[in-house]
Simulated scan of single mutants.
Amino acid sequence: MNISLTGRHLELTDAIKTHMTSSIETLNKYNMGITSVNVIASAQTKKGKEHSMVEFVITMAGKNSVIIKQNDDDLYAAIDIAIERAQKALRRMHDKEVDHQKVGLNTIKSEDVDVKETAEAMEDEIVPVELDLYKPREVEDVLNDLKESNKMFEIFLDNEDKTRVLYKRNDGKFGLY
């Protein structure tokens, strides 16, 4: 991996160069085939205040380049934030490559799928259940049933023909809509 460090309107000391180089070395753990990293550090004055800007251009073999620009009052902080952003971008690219299966259109076309069998198999998965929603119930009865079961909520009609929901809250209490 080629590393190019450039300073504009500021002198790069050995400590800054060491910090940049060690930060860049952490990008190797993603195995993305990084060919070169160009770092441009500059000092700018806006509205009477000095602040630092760091730009990372990460070039990878066979992939798009990653460009990260970061401004901060402190040069070391700008470098650290930019490296974190670069790591996040490389991690996302790495996860995309590793997690997604690359299936071509020809392999999908070559698979024989019987539509009727698939539809029948899906029909077997749906089991109709008779609802007890039409029976009016007392809130206390529903509360007792909910305490005894593993359910998180119960939907029922109360004596005034209103649809109500009794649910378990995270704090161990119960809520009623």
Rank of each mutant, 00 (worst) to 15 (best):
N2E: 13
N2V: 04
N2H: 12
S4F: 10
T6V: 12
R8V: 02
H9Q: 12
L12E: 01
L12D: 01
T13C: 07
T13H: 08
T13A: 02
I16A: 02
I16L: 14
I16V: 13
T18L: 10
T21Q: 12
S23L: 05
I24P: 02
L27P: 06
L27I: 07
N28E: 15
K29F: 03
Y30N: 08
N31V: 05
T35Q: 10
S36I: 05
S36A: 14
I40G: 01
A41R: 04
S42T: 15
S42C: 05
A43D: 08
T45E: 12
K46Q: 11
G48W: 00
K49Q: 12
E50I: 15
H51I: 08
V54K: 09
E55K: 14
E55L: 04
F56D: 00
T59I: 06
T59P: 03
M60I: 07
A61N: 11
G62R: 06
N64S: 11
V66T: 12
V66Q: 06
I67W: 06
I68Q: 03
Q70D: 00
Q70A: 00
N71M: 07
D74S: 10
L75I: 10
Y76I: 05
A77D: 12
A78G: 00
A78D: 00
D80F: 04
A82D: 03
A82E: 06
I83N: 13
E84Q: 13
A86T: 08
A89E: 15
L90R: 09
R91M: 10
R92M: 09
R92G: 07
D95R: 15
D95Q: 15
K96M: 11
K96V: 06
D99H: 14
D99G: 10
D99Y: 09
K102F: 01
K102W: 02
G104E: 10
T107V: 03
K109N: 11
E111N: 08
D112H: 15
V113M: 07
D114A: 05
D114F: 08
K116S: 12
E117L: 11
T118Y: 13
A119Q: 12
E120C: 04
E120Y: 14
A121C: 08
M122H: 11
M122L: 13
E123H: 09
D124G: 14
E125A: 14
P128G: 07
V129S: 04
E130P: 02
Y134T: 11
P136V: 03
E138K: 15
D141F: 00
D141Y: 00
V142S: 01
L146I: 12
K147F: 09
S149W: 05
K151M: 08
K151V: 06
F153R: 02
E154A: 12
E154Y: 14
L157H: 02
D158G: 05
D158K: 02
D161V: 03
R164E: 00
R164N: 04
R164Q: 13
L166F: 08
Y167C: 02
K168C: 03
K168E: 00
N170G: 09
Y177T: 15
